[in-house]
Write a protein that binds this DNA or RNA. Structure first.
Lengths: 163, 163
DNA sequence: CATGAAACTTTTTCTGG
DNA sequence: CCAGAAAAAGTTTCATG
């Protein structure tokens, strides 16, 4: 029943040496535990941080209220779900293409797992997930044809090192 | 206690139209619900998918056993934790630098949230999180000085569009 | 073989110290 | 922060289609 998902490296932001977050040591251990198993019971967490289940719940509630804890989610295996191929696409937009327009363009693709506007030559970086190369190719082609998009440069993921 | 985290776009792989995963419609709805709230009770989930809590638990257990569900985790707000600045760094390695060496280099930085080896000109793409620009700059400098690293090209994240 | 109901255990949630 | 009681959720067992 225990999930082994080391944090620090991974989808979670680093907990240790956080510059400033008003977290005490117990909060950090507690969040680390929730990072490893988001369904861990308050009682079990409390046993590990030397706190009663009630105290643990109150701390987590407080962290939720503050917005530090945004919620809880399930971690799935994209490969086993049939989404084994991923890529990053740098998108170069035409002049006068707003982030809103980029967003609107990308929103329609379920293959777009994440996207950011960035500094530098490209305007946006897009993280794609697809079933296979063929699928990936098709999606990239469709993105390139979007009105606001001028050109793009793709990197297919060979292996996930961290995260 | 309900978390609004739309899936399809985001850290979760898309659930709908999964090419092949041996998931039936109930599994997909169930996973979607867990994506939104990883701590939702079996009873509540069951009420939404017209199944008993027992049946829901067994389905989730089965999905865990198959590896489709890797676990559960908490979703944190990096900004409120003091990690508000992020960037992507393309790393160009020297000849004969293995992925293992890249991994070993990057592992030591807690600021490295994710990293992939990729096709194309750069060898690796690195996702960084830092407290601020100053911090980000320092980390990138340290990465550039790593033995296996030849040069790098960075994009600072301006805004998160999706994910 | 998956399901649902019931029995049983653990955990959560209140209350008041 | 602790203790205890009530409520809810998790877990196991068993019978059914």
């Amino acid at each position: 029943m225990s999930t082994s998902r080391p944090v620090g490296h991974g989808p979670l932001p680093p907990l240790h040496s956080a510059p400033d977050a008003d977290l005490d040591d117990i909060d950090r251990r507690l969040l680390r535990r929730l990072g490893e198993d988001g369904r861990a019971s308050y009682a079990r967490i409390g046993a590990e941080v030397n706190l009663s289940a009630t105290a643990v719940k109150r701390r987590i509630d407080r962290l939720r209220a503050r917005g530090v804890v945004r919620g809880f989610t399930v971690v799935l295996d994209p490969r086993l779900l049939g989404w084994g191929t991923e890529a990053f696409v740098e998108v170069y937009c035409r002049e006068r293409t707003s982030p809103e327009e980029i967003l609107a363009s990308l929103r329609q693709f379920p293959e777009v797992v994440a996207a950011w506007t960035v500094t530098g030559d490209p305007d946006a970086l897009v993280h794609l997930r697809a079933a296979d190369m063929r699928h990936l190719d098709a999606v990239i082609e469709r993105i390139r044809r979007e009105p606001g998009v001028q050109r793009s440069r793709s990197s297919v993921v060979l292996s996930r090192l961290i995260g």
